[in-house]
Each structure stands twice: as C-alpha cells, then as structure tokens.
C-alpha cells in the first residue's frame, strides 16, 4: 500500500518590535555617563501551520527590530513513506486465519527481561510457528517492532528495542526464513501497552510485536 503523507505548512510571521537602548547608571545620582547603545528587540508575532497528517509546526514569536518586518507563506512538500509492491503481503483469507484466536499464529508478542534481548524458552514455539508460516508463504512479510519499558534513557531504549527486534529476526532466519521477509524497527519506550509505572506494567511493555503486511 502506498501511503502518502502530506504535511502542508502555511506559515505567516508577523513581527512587531522596536530597538532597546541600554544605558549604564553610575554614581548615586541619576547621571548616566555611558551609553552602551546595545540593542535588543521584542516582537509580537505568530505563525501557524496545518497538516493532514496531524502534525503542526510553528515559529517562535520572532525577535528583531523594526515595525512590521516579515511575512512569509510557505508550503512544505509532501513526504512519503516507501511504497510496497502489491505482490507481497498476505491474502485476505490468510489475514483472517492469522487473526483467528484458535490459531497459534494469532500470538504475536514476545516478552523480555530488563535490558535484555535474550529470547526465553517459552517463546520458542511461538517463533517456530511464525517461521513455519513465513517459509511456506514466501510472499508473506512481517515487521518486527521492538519495544522497551519506560525506565532509563529513551535513546538507549530505542537501541535496545532495535536489538530485541533483531534478536527475533535472527531466530527466524536461523529457522530458514528469508532475510527480506522480515523488517525490524524500534519504537523504544514510546508506545507502551500498559500505562502503569510498576513491574506489572513494565513486563508487558518489554516486548517484540509481529505485524504481517497486508493484514
């Protein structure tokens, strides 16, 4: 599916301001003896943007001197995600089968220990089931999404999520799945499934999710 994201940016900057004069006051009487002539300026202004993707950006109220100084309108070009050929992915019938709760392939989540990408024995069966399906269906593609709990560094958690995704990918490849059937991404700690701030929430959030393309 080709997904086009269009972010329109309509920008208008209005800045109003004036110069500021700075004088040093010395002695105990009101007798300024030095004029620094430093100038800073304040401005009132606003900028707005809008986008069909729901992302909006704006400028800060501009700093500068002068009266009505700058106005601009601008369109940000559309950005697109890479499109995929329609020959890969699962069929509608397969998609229904993959989601059938009685089917082992409906189990899609692999959980991890803190700061670990080691696959626990209890998830071997789940991974083997998906490996079997991917091997039988060479057009099937999955995205492995790595996630972490909220603790520690967001950036390190993005790296750790990537490694969790790679860890399961390596297991699948060792089981005979083709490299290009599996794409790995990390969302770090940004997309928790449980919102709490204790171990019962964290253990649900340290996970890999398997998503089939086209389902």
């Amino acid at each position: 599916m080709n997904m086009i994201q269009r972010v329109f940016l309509v920008l208008a900057v209005l800045s109003l301001g004036g110069c500021a004069d700075l004088k040093e006051l010395t002695g105990t009487s009101d007798a300024p003896i030095e004029d620094h002539g430093a100038s800073t300026a304040a401005a009132q202004g606003t900028a707005g943007t809008n986008g069909s993707q729901g992302v909006e950006t704006a400028a800060l109220p501009a700093a500068g001197s002068g009266d009505v100084r700058a106005m601009a309108a601008n369109q940000q070009n559309a950005e697109s995600q890479s499109g995929r050929s329609s020959v890969v992915g699962v069929s509608t019938a397969q998609a229904a089968m993959l989601k059938d709760p009685n089917n082992p392939l409906s189990k899609r989540v692999i959980y991890f220990d803190f700061d670990s990408d080691a696959i626990k024995d209890e998830f071997r069966g789940l991974i083997e089931a998906h490996a079997g399906f991917l091997k039988r269906n060479s057009a099937a593609r999955i995205i492995l999404q790595g996630h972490t709990d909220e603790r520690g560094s967001r950036d390190y958690n993005l790296a750790l999520g990537q490694r969790r995704a790679e860890s399961v990918k390596q297991a699948l490849v060792l089981m005979g799945v083709q490299n290009d059937q599996v794409e790995t991404v990390s969302l770090g700690e940004e997309k928790p499934v449980a919102e709490g701030h204790d171990e019962s929430a964290w253990k649900q959030n340290r996970r890999d999710e398997i998503h089939y393309l086209g389902e």
Partner: peptide, 10 residues
C-alpha cells in the same frame, strides 16, 4: 546601575 529603554512587551 542600568537604564533600559524598551518596548512594553520587553
């Protein structure tokens, strides 16, 4: 000791 001559917004 300083004196600043500025727009009210500042």
């Amino acid at each position: 000791g300083f004196s600043y001559l500025v727009p009210p917004t500042m």
